[in-house]
């Protein structure tokens, strides 16, 4: 069974790396470039997990997570935040918005996959 992950990041390099790390382990990855785009792509998608960056144009990660959590069908979808800073207040803000966990950028692919396993089974 193939798992599906939606990854939202405005950096093409980061998307490329996520794509590589995810497809390597057979995860089907969908991508979006910012929060607004992320919500568009999410439409009709039933991802096993969502990965999102924080700093993005149009709608940032916090806004995106809140918007996803407001949708009843996505209330329980695990959301991992990709951040460059592991500052506690950032984690706290992400968690308040509804994030499930976080991965510190630059990420280690094995760790990323393990984090997905942790939250999405």
């Amino acid at each position: 069974m193939t798992r599906t992950v939606l990854a939202v990041d405005d950096s093409r390099t980061m998307r490329d790396m996520l794509r590589l790390a995810l497809t390597e382990v057979g995860i089907k990855a969908h991508f979006a470039e910012d929060g607004v785009h992320g919500l568009e792509v999410l439409e009709g998608l039933e991802p096993d997990a969502i990965i999102t960056d924080i700093n993005m144009p149009r709608m940032d990660g916090f806004g995106f997570i809140s918007a996803v959590r407001k949708r009843p069908e996505y209330r329980g979808v695990p959301i991992l935040v990709l951040t460059t800073e592991s500052a506690p207040e950032l984690k706290q803000r992400a968690r308040e918005a509804g994030a499930t966990g976080w991965i510190v950028k630059p990420f280690d692919p094995a760790k990323l996959v393990r984090a997905i396993d942790m939250v999405a089974g």
Binding site: M1, T4, E33, H37, L45, D48, V77, G121
Partner: peptide, 25 residues
């Protein structure tokens, strides 16, 4: 097999989901 057992709603339509690709501007 827990993912299949416990998340039927979320994994039921992977094919429908895969049809939808993120738009690349």
């Amino acid at each position: 097999p827990p993912s299949t057992a416990t998340r039927p709603a979320l994994t039921a339509a992977p094919s429908a989901a895969s049809d939808r690709k993120p738009t690349a501007p």
